[in-house]
Write a protein that binds this DNA or RNA. Structure first.
Lengths: 339, 339
DNA sequence: AGTATAATCCGAAACGTTTTGGGTGTCAAC
DNA sequence: GTTGACACCCAAAACGTTTCGGATTATACT
């Protein structure tokens, strides 16, 4: 059924070599022959066998992306938007994108990375949500495998990455709340071990300290990055006496969960308790009240990460192996008026 | 750098054939030889070249998924959850998942499908958000290419699919609102051409008719499936006089956008206007007020679709080539109390 | 007539694997 | 001492493509 070069060669009466070269557009094939070959090729509905090409070219033109998802079910808009960015950029360079999902630090995840490092699976990998002491990155560096990360690590490994300056972002948000008159600000932090959570935490502590505002240990609780996690984490925060006047979600999803729980307790967000988020997912503008948050251009980050990876794969040293994006504060209603 | 069978063969002093068979566990290799081969293999860090295996086996063990996204930027939780379902199921059968994104009915989308139909790219495809007169499915059927769809079509083409009974789902929701005392119910419909939108619309009209409730044409407006679209579509709906007492979003994202806009107009959702959604995305439980909606088990649907596709690829006729899931109504607060 | 030049074409190897269809040698049974 | 069975091993082909290094022929120039 599927036509091969050999089929065309037989029918036209030339060698496989000539067919290959004619189709590839070399100029050492006579015009007439080229015509005939092309005619037969399209008549037979020929299209090259991609696997054979890959074997011969010794490259797969495929990028890999292993999503670090907590639990099999998840629904983090971060991933769909990031995939869109990476995928479209990849497509525009004629690369395919292979995706899979594994829980962070799980055995499955490690196996997936080991598989990826094998030759012939993908040409390069994209790593997101970097961790302190990140085994994925250690493995990749050790094997000298091409990859680009979204996020930095605490190791002093040298590798190309894109990252947002989360610390500055958090400073912006905390300062905004302080400027509004808040002094008792709680934080629902990302799970420990995640680098971006660490930077955000740092930004929080530093800004409080710079404003001479003490922080009680119980003002910071961990959440699992989901709405449910945000809702659950906010409960102890609301029990603190005297009450916190503002609560920050380590990401928008947790902030949304927090808003929900705060309202269930009969408090009004933006008046009784100010709430801030982080990420500016599309939904953030549509919560009630709309969420004050820090904007991250996830789609563009995906594009940029992908473009860098393609550079790395092709041996072009990226002009800027480390790019740090500047975040912006989006003020909406959840942070309320000055008190 | 990368070790091949030939390298191992040379070092051990046997033929490539023997190495291959030893590693594959055939029993026509002496125990001792097998041991030595395995030792050398692991010493050299050998792992088979996947592309070569694929060329020889004439199958890629890869599934394709082309997301029909409106605009390059999107953030529909449907896709991340669906990918997770498909991806995990695929992984458990040792299949890879190749994804890309294209706008529905675009030239890029068509090209992507044509590329997919070529041999050696993927073994099968997953199609979602089926459309009336769906060119993708027509192409796939014409080429006899293995695929499974999430959704039906209006053609009388025969192909395996999984679908939710959207019509019944919508009936459940509309009846719920009617039982609450609503008579003037608006609908933000999915863009025309989408099959699931058509079924939902049908369920809406039928239920209204069965309850002897007239429907004015201006009660139904189209939205683009995003929050923004939902917000924009709700504006004309709110201008209708006398006011509609309930509004249904064709999906949860649009319902959330609608809630936002309704509240901006100073109306209270659940008291002044009841709102219903469709999909039960994780966020639906965390809006304020929480959203009454129809539950779709997207993750499981992804799994099921993927499992069917793998059956099709391997020539196992699926036991049930057409499976229709029964939706359930999730009553939360956005639909309010009886009036 | 001899030789350089260009225009066409092709055989064979290579990419790394799996599989087919044997081959060789040993040992026991007759 | 032949036969058969068995254990072990391998050469070669195949998957479909690209590319290297010529080979062949015709044309043009001395």
């Amino acid at each position: 059924m599927a036509a091969t070069l050999k089929d065309i060669a037989r029918q036209v009466g030339v060698s496989v070599t000539t067919v290959s070269r004619a189709l590839a557009g070399y100029d050492d094939v006579a015009e007439g022959t080229k015509e005939r070959i092309k005619a037969v090729a399209s008549e037979l509905g020929y299209s090259p066998n991609i696997v054979a090409q890959r074997l011969q070219k010794q490259r797969t033109d495929t990028l890999g992306f292993i999503m670090p998802t907590f639990g099999p079910r998840f629904s983090d808009p971060f991933f769909s938007e990031f995939i869109a960015g990476v995928g479209n950029e990849a497509a525009s360079h004629e690369y395919d994108l292979l995706v899979s999902a594994h829980a962070p630090n799980s055995a499955g995840e490690l196996k997936a990375y080991e598989r990826a490092v094998r030759r012939g699976w993908v040409d390069g990998l994209i790593v997101v949500r970097t961790r302190e002491d990140d085994t994925r990155i250690q493995l990749l560096c050790a094997h000298n495998f091409p990859f680009v990360a979204f996020g930095r690590t605490s190791d002093d490994l040298e590798f190309p990455y894109v990252d947002e300056d989360s610390e500055t972002g958090m400073r912006l948000l905390v300062q905004h709340l302080i400027d509004l008159g808040h002094k008792r600000i709680g934080l629902i932090a990302a799970p420990s071990g995640l680098m971006f959570g660490r930077y955000r935490l740092q930004g929080y502590y530093d800004t409080m300290r710079d404003n001479n505002l003490p922080v009680q240990p119980e003002w910071v609780v961990e959440g699992d990055m989901t709405q449910r996690g945000g809702a659950e984490a906010v409960t102890p925060l609301l029990g603190i006496n005297p009450r916190l006047t503002a609560i920050i979600g380590g990401n928008d999803l947790m902030a949304i969960g927090a808003i929900n729980r705060i309202q269930q307790q009969g408090l009004q967000v933006g008046r009784d308790v100010a709430v801030g988020g982080f990420d500016d997912i599309p939904l953030a503008a549509y919560t009630s009240p709309p969420l004050t948050t820090i904007h991250q251009p996830i789609y563009e980050i995906g594009q940029r990460t992908c473009a860098m990876l393609i550079d790395v794969i092709n041996g072009r040293a990226p002009t800027t192996p480390h790019s740090l994006l500047t975040p912006t504060l989006i003020i909406r209603e959840s942070s309320g008026n000055p008190i």
